[in-house]
């Protein structure tokens, strides 16, 4: 399972990137980049997200 960002919901605020212990998420100007090889399926980012824009999906999504 890999963290997957729902682009329609994402505010690009960086709450998820702040708490990820593995630097698997990176906030860019208008995207959150997911390094799927670094993601450990821990779900911390899912809880941190203020708008519920992150899900853990097998293999990860496109964005």
């Amino acid at each position: 399972m890999v963290a997957t960002i729902n682009k329609d919901k994402c505010m690009y605020c960086g709450a998820c990137t702040s708490v990820c212990p593995f630097m698997a998420l990176e906030l860019r100007e208008t995207s959150i980049h997911v390094y799927s090889d670094k993601c450990t399926d821990c779900g911390i980012c899912v809880k941190a997200c203020p708008v519920g824009a992150i899900k853990l999906i097998p293999g990860g999504g496109k964005e």
Binding site: G14, S18, V19, M23, E26, K47
Partner: peptide
């Protein structure tokens, strides 16, 4: 670079925020 500081982490400082 704010609460999601990557620069600190890239430099080897522990800036990860516990949930």
């Amino acid at each position: 670079d704010g609460v999601d500081s990557r620069i600190g982490r890239m430099a080897g400082l522990n800036t990860t925020l516990p949930l």
